[in-house]
Simulated assay, not measured.
Amino acid sequence: MANLLITGGAGFIGGNFVHYWADKHPDDTMIVLDCLTYAGNESTIAGVEQAELVVGNILDSGLVEKLLRECDISTIVHFAAESHVDRSISGPDAFIETNILGTNSLLKAARTVWLDEGAGKPHRFHHISTDEVYGSLGPEDPAFSETTQYQPNSPYSASKASSDHLVRAYHHTFGLEVTTSNCSNNYGPYQYPEKLIPLFLLNSLYGRDLPIYGDGMNVRDWLHVEDHCRGVEACLAKGTPGETYNIGGGAELPNMAVIDRICAEVDNAFAEIDGLAERYPDAPAAKGKPTSELKTFVTDRKGHDRRYAIDETKARSELGYAPAHSFETGLANTLRWYLGNEEWWLPLAKS
């Protein structure tokens, strides 16, 4: 039995991890620390008996220290982050505050309780990062490995790169037992509808434009969130302190291919599910038209990296990690989840 502190555990990836961990480790207890910003939703983890939600900010080192002591926490899994690139361009300050200062606050608290007071008590601080810290790849460049030079190109990726360096420094300077995982683009249930897949799905249902940046050929590696959770679990169980592991989905696709697949899945759903046309009468598919007619090209965003790709050789060889979801099946299941859980996303779509 273990006690974990999950930061950002009411968000998309953190919330899925809470569900995953409760299912795979039913005897463990999770304290979820989340300040419930726009992307944090208490309903995401409602009903998970092993999880206790504490509404608070990771910048509050005193609160984190208190939780580590009183709840006898031995593991921190740090998901909490500002993560939307567009928001980082329009307002970078929040990203500096949460991603850099917030991570430093957690590290300070962990050092105080686990090292200064705990005299080397067994512990683990696992930090969730992103492949965006590596910058952008050309069409023929090799995929990102753990030794790829950091070249962040947005305020978001720069703030995550900074947090990665802080985690590494606390290990090498103070001896804190840390691991870091850099993941590719996540998708799946409970994702806030500002990211590509849920945004385009909901826009399709309401007959709204599907805005495509530039030529739509920016390439990303797509990782089902449950596979990401399995990767984090492997890092905690088998990861070497001080090491970094890249977690990918093995589905490197241009955005246009993803968008076309979303359109096709929406069309299929309207053809197969009774009553869907009545629920969403503004959808082109409700009128027998292709969802793809909503595709609209817009001006490319600033600093838009062209291609990301993950080399997960290290995670496969050292952790035994391999993605279990194909993109085709994972996307189809994700779209059906949104269609079956309107009560979760409808308040967000209206906000």
Results as ranks from 00 to 15, higher is better:
Asn3Trp: 05
Gly8Lys: 07
Phe12Ile: 07
Gly14Ala: 04
Pro26Met: 01
Asp27Arg: 13
Asp28Ala: 03
Thr29Phe: 06
Thr29Ser: 12
Met30Leu: 15
Leu33Phe: 07
Thr37Tyr: 03
Tyr38Asn: 13
Gly40Ser: 02
Gly40Met: 01
Asn41Arg: 15
Thr44Leu: 07
Ala46Asn: 14
Gln50Asp: 06
Glu52Ile: 08
Glu52Val: 03
Val54Pro: 00
Ile58Asn: 03
Leu68Asp: 02
Arg69His: 03
Cys71Ala: 12
Cys71Thr: 12
Val77Cys: 12
Val77Pro: 04
Ala80Arg: 02
Ser88Pro: 04
Ala94Lys: 13
Thr98Lys: 12
Thr98Ser: 12
Asn99Met: 06
Asn99Cys: 07
Ile100Trp: 05
Leu101Cys: 10
Leu107Gln: 08
Lys108Asp: 10
Lys108Phe: 05
Ala109Lys: 04
Ala110Ile: 02
Arg111Ala: 12
Asp116Arg: 11
Asp116Ser: 13
Asp116Lys: 13
Glu117Trp: 00
Glu117Ala: 09
Glu117Leu: 00
Gly120Ser: 08
His123Trp: 09
Phe125Leu: 02
His127Ala: 08
Asp131Trp: 08
Val133Thr: 12
Pro142Lys: 08
Phe144Arg: 00
Ser145Pro: 08
Glu146Gln: 10
Glu146Met: 11
Glu146Arg: 10
Glu146Val: 14
Thr147Arg: 11
Thr147Gln: 14
Tyr150Ser: 14
Pro155Ile: 03
Ala158His: 09
Lys160Ala: 07
Asp164Trp: 07
Leu166Trp: 06
Leu166Arg: 06
Tyr170Leu: 07
Phe174Gln: 03
Gly175His: 06
Leu176Pro: 01
Leu176Thr: 06
Cys183Val: 13
Asn185Glu: 12
Asn186Trp: 01
Asn186Met: 13
Gly188Asn: 03
Pro193His: 03
Glu194Ala: 06
Phe200Met: 10
Asn203Glu: 08
Asp209Gln: 11
Gly214Ser: 03
Gly216Ala: 08
Met217Phe: 07
Val219Asp: 07
Arg220Cys: 01
Trp222Glu: 04
Leu223Val: 01
His224Ser: 05
Val225Ala: 06
Glu226Trp: 03
Glu226Ala: 08
His228Trp: 14
Cys229Ile: 06
Gly231Ile: 05
Val232Arg: 01
Glu233Phe: 01
Cys235Arg: 09
Leu236Thr: 11
Ala237Gln: 14
Tyr245Phe: 13
Asn246Val: 00
Ile247Leu: 09
Glu252Met: 14
Leu253Gln: 10
Leu253Met: 09
Asn255Gln: 15
Met256Gln: 00
Ala257Gly: 10
Arg261Ala: 11
Ile262Cys: 04
Phe270Tyr: 02
Glu272Cys: 05
Ile273Gly: 09
Leu276Met: 11
Ala285Gln: 07
Ser292Val: 04
Glu293Leu: 11
Leu294Val: 05
Val298Tyr: 07
Lys302Arg: 15
Gly303Leu: 13
Asp305Gln: 11
Arg306Phe: 03
Glu312Phe: 10
Ser317Arg: 14
Glu318Asp: 15
Gly320Met: 12
Gly320Lys: 10
Tyr321Trp: 12
Ala324Arg: 14
His325Lys: 13
Leu335His: 00
Arg336Glu: 13
Arg336Asn: 12
Trp337Pro: 00
Tyr338Lys: 06
Leu339Ile: 00
Leu339Asn: 01
Asn341Trp: 05
Glu343Ala: 15
Trp344Ser: 04
Trp345Pro: 02
Leu348Glu: 09
Leu348Ser: 06
Lys350Ala: 15
Lys350Arg: 15
